[in-house]
Design a protein around this nucleic acid. Structure first.
Length: 635
DNA sequence: CTTAGGG
DNA sequence: CCCTAAG
């Protein structure tokens, strides 16, 4: 959803929290050291600035006491099953490996949760503005307009689900926790089960309503109780919102599971006020109810598809819960929810999209739209990407966004990095896709999503969250792979089949977007043996120097090889054939592919031929045919 | 536009 | 590979 209405600040999204140094006590208690870092688009972690730290500080402080618990538990418990990678924005760095992973998960979850919350909030606001407020009045008091609930939305459900999911992880303890008064909480929901659950969760808000009546001083107290720290903020709205958030979070936390935590929370609430207590209990209740089921659902949802933002939110929720569990208290969660939330993500996304859009979009639009779609399928491993893509969707609005993501991915991976296996798969897949596309039509519209899908899938499977290199379908993926034979065969076949139309598709792959004046061409494509052979053959047939002709005859399929390229390559071949004479070995330079002696020999012959023949050839094109014959005979 | 050659 | 000059 769009902009974050309720959220005040925003971290840019990239920021992450974690922290180590800031709160002294935390360090003491917690064996794990957290560091606040910003995750750059490329995945690098950059130390957070003071400002950023400040933003997050609150969380840290609050967490101090519990963080440790979380960490411990988290490690042993396995905080999150959901694996959304932190690729995007936030990431926790931990000194401890295990903790690290968990934390990362938690963070990602938090992010999702935040997003959801924002979304909900946003919706609520809208609703309120529309006059829907009545709705919330009784059942769900509107906290700040934040979340209330209109359960009808799937989003809410998803949220609930996610919450439950979290619980499920730690299910054992949960059950014990309690679900005392589900009925009471539910108050009047005629909605479906899920819905009702939500309501329950939100019932907490009921307490919130009271917030409105509270004086600032009272709010401060409440704040203190809730977050364990005092606040000097005089903004009533802010306080209310904050508290509301914390409450919401607390619910999650309870869900998360730790009894201990629950206890803590409960205590707090008790101290603070009746309302809070009620909420806490409620939240607990809610969570436990659907634990397992929810969890599964959420995961399923992810897998099923990201089309809806909702899905993402779910995931996030899960993460969020995890975090709570990990150690963050209400207030932590709250802060995140309030601050981090989506905005950052959006920005982040936008930035990314911009960068990529320059180069990728043009290409994508023209040739591969499908790819984007394919991504939609969520893969856990690819979570980071997924996220990105999703985000993009939000930003751009619409399916279009997805495409960019894909392109982006492609971009990131120059192509070759993928393992040979990948290449192999890709080649096959890509070609198949291309063929299909071509058959369908070159328009670039490819009607077949399926084509895209498969590649995407592969990519997802293969690729790891981190950086993602994907050779990507769009690319011809011909020669890159180390495995020459297979690839070569494919390549050869492919060109012939696709030749006619291939030009277009190839272009996509190869062309260089060159936005400004910068990038000129593609990312150097290594010459494959097949290509070299073709070149030699072409030269033998057409004669050296008639590159355009050779290009047409032998390289029509390879759009990325221009006549100039052929010429250059030939030049290199000549050099190679002559100079090193042969190492004795077929292989040539390290990086370059080994050129079989036979080919070199042939190149030499042709070279000699050219020396002799040139006059003849040059004499006339018409004679070319004759010339060719002669040559062949000579050879 | 195609070649040829230098970077 | 890229760029440019020359035809």
């Amino acid at each position: 959803m769009g902009p974050v209405t309720g959220i005040e600040h925003n971290d840019d999204g990239k920021l992450d929290k974690s922290s180590s140094a800031l709160p002294p006590r935390k360090q003491i208690a917690n064996p794990v050291v957290y560091k606040l870092v910003r995750v750059e688009g490329d995945g690098r972690l950059v130390p957070a600035t003071d400002d950023e730290v400040m933003e997050v500080e609150g969380f840290l402080e609050c967490d101090n006491s519990e963080m440790r618990v979380v960490a411990d538990n988290g490690q042993s418990l396995e905080c999150i099953s959901i694996e959304r990678s932190s690729s995007g924005k936030l990431r926790l760095e931990c000194s401890e490996g295990t903790a690290e992973a968990d934390l990362g998960k938690l963070n990602s979850k938090l992010q999702y949760i935040e997003q959801i919350l924002q979304k909900v909030k946003h919706e609520e606001k809208l609703r309120l503005s529309c006059g829907a407020s009545q709705f919330s009045a009784d059942k769900l008091p509107v906290m700040d307009g934040k979340i209330q609930a209109d359960p009808p939305d799937q989003e809410i459900q998803s949220v609930a689900t996610s919450l439950n999911c979290t619980h499920s992880n730690q299910s054992g303890s949960f059950d014990q926790c309690s679900r005392p008064s589900e009925g009471a909480v539910e108050s009047g929901s005629s909605a479906p089960a899920v819905y009702s659950k939500l309501k329950r969760d939100f019932s907490m808000f009921g307490g919130e309503i009271c917030l409105d009546k509270l004086s600032i001083r009272e709010l401060h107290e409440l704040f203190k109780v809730t977050f364990g720290r005092e606040t000097t903020v005089k903004d009533k709205q802010w306080l209310k919102r904050r508290i509301a958030m914390s409450l919401t979070n607390s619910c999650d936390v309870s869900a998360t599971t730790f009894i201990v935590k629950d206890n803590k929370i409960v205590r707090k609430h008790e101290d603070s006020s009746e309302n809070e207590n009620a909420e806490a209990s409620i939240s607990l209740e809610n969570m436990p109810a659907e634990e397992d089921v929810n969890f599964k659902d959420s995961s399923a949802a992810e897998d099923s598809g990201f089309e809806d933002n909702l899905v993402v939110p779910e995931t996030r929720l899960g993460n969020h819960n995890m975090e709570h569990k990990s150690g963050s208290e209400d207030h932590q969660t709250e802060q995140r929810a309030a601050k981090r939330i989506r905005k950052p993500t959006k920005r982040y996304i936008e930035e990314l999209s911009e960068n990529e859009s320059r180069e990728h979009q043009p290409r994508l639009l023209g040739s591969n739209k499908n790819i984007g779609i394919g991504y939609t399928k969520p893969a856990r491993n690819a979570s980071s990407e997924m996220r990105t893509s999703i985000t993009r969707l939000d930003t751009l609005g619409g399916s279009c966004i997805q495409i960019p993501c894909v392109s982006r991915v492609r971009r990131s991976c120059p192509r070759r990095n993928m393992t040979s296996l990948m290449t192999f798969l890709q080649t096959g897949m890509v070609e198949a896709e291309k063929l299909a596309n071509r058959v369908l039509g070159e328009h670039g519209l490819h009607g077949s999503n399926s084509d895209n899908k498969s590649p995407d899938k592969i990519l997802k499977l293969t690729s790891t969250p981190g950086k993602f290199h994907q050779p990507s379908a769009p690319e011809p993926g011909k020669e890159l792979s180390p495995v020459k034979c297979t690839i070569e065969l494919q390549q050869e076949l492919k060109p012939k089949k696709t030749d006619p139309s291939s030009g277009t598709s190839d272009d996509d792959i190869t062309t260089v977007p060159t936005a400004k004046g910068g990038m000129r061409r593609k990312h150097h494509r290594a010459w494959t043996l097949v290509e070299v052979m073709k070149l030699v053959e072409g030269v033998s047939q057409c004669g050296a120097g008639r590159w355009s002709e050779i290009k047409r005859l032998s390289f029509s399929s390879y759009s990325y090889r221009t006549s100039v390229d052929l010429k250059d390559k030939w030049r290199n071949l000549l050099k190679a054939s002559y100079a090193p004479a042969d190492d004795g070995m077929n292989s040539r330079k390290h990086g370059t592919i080994p050129i079989p002696e036979s080919i070199l020999a042939r190149v030499r012959e042709l070279a000699e031929m050219n020396l002799q023949v040139p006059p003849n050839l040059s004499s006339s094109k018409l004679t070319a045919g004759n010339v060719v014959v002669d040559r062949s005979g000579l050879l």
